[in-house]
Simulated assay, not measured.
Amino acid sequence: MAFPKTPLIGLKADGFRHPLDLEATQSLKQLPGLDLIVRQLLGSIGEQFFYLDNIASSVLVSEQQLPELHQLLKEACQVLDLETPELYVRQHPMPNAYTFAMRGKKPFVVIHTSLIELLTPAEIQAVIGHELGHLKCEHGVYLTLANLIMLAAGQLSTVGALIAQTLQSQILQWVRCAEFSCDRAALLATQDSRVVSSVLMKLAGGSPTLAPQLNLDAFLAQARAYDESSSTELGLLLREAQTGQLTHPLPVLRAREIDRWASSKDYETLLQKGKMCYSSETEKKGEWRNW
């Protein structure tokens, strides 16, 4: 069966990584005390807790268990040229998905049932692609640190708590920047910017009842209006105040950002390069691909 999207053979993270992600990661690596806070947090809670909690409370997706979701995962991994992680579905009323990468353990992705109920299959694949972006960009260590700081702040020693408080704003800034790279991974996985933007729209104001009534073009116009109105000096200050304590950029900002990148030469070049590489690979195997 013909593959429905362009597989990006040999795709590297730096081929789509957002410049803000690169800048924030470099800044984070230079922070003093980072190693100490990691040791304290891992010593008090431990990564194993998260792994055991997940496998005890979720359903592992496979060819035998929720095979349609498993196929969406496999296709997204093929497109992004990434080894397939484990995918779990977890019963939860808050629409969310997250990725966890432990040292020496196979990484896994978790999607809440409420998010699945909100989205179409194509949009679910966009969410999977976004989470795979964290793995492709090797965000795992810092994602673990962010999760542990948020969950363990009350259990730290005084020294650990002070360091965690100092690092929290930098960690949150990094997480928000990393999300932009992962939205790009979602676009590469689906190769349809409207699908990615639709996910963001539904996260902003959707529900299983309202989702079919939402107008994506109106939401994109809203995103552009917000972008324009916050471009002044005062607007930038207000935007920073809005996002300073958030773990994700505002949905309208993410939609505007992905809308821009989808029409960029960088994105088009990645797809064209992927087509050329895939055509070359299929010809070597004696296969034919109709682009």
Rank of each mutant, 00 (worst) to 15 (best):
E23S: 09
G140Y: 00
P251S: 12
Q40M: 14
S57E: 13
T209F: 09
D227F: 07
N96G: 00
T166H: 12
G15P: 02
G46A: 04
R194C: 04
G154T: 04
Q78A: 10
Q71G: 06
L238C: 10
A262K: 04
D266C: 00
L42H: 13
S207Y: 00
S193N: 04
Q165L: 07
F180L: 15
E131H: 06
E117M: 00
P19C: 02
L11M: 00
L203M: 12
L148M: 15
A164V: 01
R103K: 15
S193Q: 06
T144N: 15
Q245Y: 13
N290G: 09
D192N: 15
T269E: 07
E283H: 11
A262L: 08
C137I: 02
A2R: 11
Q222V: 05
L73G: 01
L34R: 05
E240L: 09
L148R: 01
L132S: 00
Q78Y: 08
T158L: 05
E257S: 14
L250E: 12
V175W: 01
L172E: 11
Q30F: 01
F108E: 02
L20E: 14
A76P: 02
L132K: 02
V195G: 01
L118N: 00
N147V: 04
P121R: 12
S27V: 03
R260H: 15
G15D: 01
S264R: 12
F49T: 08
Q242L: 12
L172W: 06
D217I: 01
W291E: 12
G244D: 13
S198I: 03
L167C: 04
E138L: 12
V38D: 01
L253W: 10
L187C: 10
E131Y: 08
Q64R: 13
L41Q: 02
Q125Y: 07
D183K: 04
G160R: 08
R239W: 07
S193P: 01
T269S: 12
L270P: 07
E281Y: 13
K265G: 09
G160I: 05
L210Y: 01
L119M: 05
M276Y: 06
A164L: 08
D192V: 03
S44P: 00
N290W: 10
H130A: 09
A223E: 00
T243F: 03
T99F: 09
L200C: 08
A76R: 03
G33E: 00
C182L: 03
M102T: 10
A161E: 08
G160N: 04
L72E: 03
R176F: 02
C137W: 02
L148F: 15
S58A: 15
R256Y: 15
S263L: 11
G235S: 10
G286S: 08
S279C: 05
V175S: 06
Y51L: 10
L132E: 00
L72Q: 06
A97D: 05
L52A: 15
G244W: 10
